[in-house]
Design a protein around this nucleic acid. Sequence first.
DNA 1: GTCTTTGCAAATCATTTGCATGGAA
DNA 2: TTCCATGCAAATGATTTGCAAAGAC
Lengths: 140, 140
Amino acid sequence: MTDFEECYKAVLKLRGIKSTKQRLAVLEVLCKSDALTAEEIFLNLRDSFLNLSLSTVYRILDTLSKNSVVTKSGLMEGGRALYEITPAAHRHNLICEKCHKITPLRDCPLAEYENDIEKKTGYAISGHKLEVYGICPNCK
Amino acid sequence: MTDFEECYKAVLKLRGIKSTKQRLAVLEVLCKSDALTAEEIFLNLRDSFLNLSLSTVYRILDTLSKNSVVTKSGLMEGGRALYEITPAAHRHNLICEKCHKITPLRDCPLAEYENDIEKKTGYAISGHKLEVYGICPNCK
DNA sequence: GTCTTTGCAAATCATTTGCATGGAA
DNA sequence: TTCCATGCAAATGATTTGCAAAGAC
């Protein structure tokens, strides 16, 4: 068993989720890239799995999202949802409008802004979604 | 003909889009609320229109989006897209997670942040999407 | 009159669900 | 052994499309 599997088995156990080879495989694929659709994950795994169904991938992503192991992005380009391993730190993505390359952004300038809004509107702010768009150096 | 119709007829003419009663009706509904799904718009109009089809609403929203008259929000809660009249000024929404009430936010703290990112990443930044979530005063 | 838009129904796409079987603890 | 997870196929929900008829300019 690889180090990778060991690690994610522990992560799942911690959350009370059973380890199955499908779940570990989904996590492995997600670890290798920034954000993928359910179908992209499915296609990545179809080769290595004799039988794997797309609905299983959806169910796994749902389970892992609910347990904060993965995060469902709000992007939804063309109606498709994107999933990624939940970043340890709060993070946003910078997305190239041509090649769709995703560059993670480290800092988030919104903490103060949220405080402000909380006072002005009376909402209890729970979070936000921020995605920045542009053209990456390669595509320029 | 109402002032409203006059106004939006002019807007459409300016963009080279033909004025039809369906298009004006969609615009009128959108003017009265903050952000709606295609189906909500359809239901709003169904009473006043003998025959109106949902696909027409989708086609109108598509046309108007492409011409920047309306803006398709990235929110997509539960897979449904939200549409609103393109705000004259750059604006973001604060969304209640219980009742889905939408409160527009006036200020945007991201201009400097975008400059920063542009320098650090080499991207040509074209814009961003920001939505803030929380519980509104009523639902608390 | 010409070309675009609409209504309707059928098609499509992403995602979800029911149910019997297989697998993890 | 006891449930929970999976595969498959069918269902659902949002959105799109083909085509003939109605409408805008």
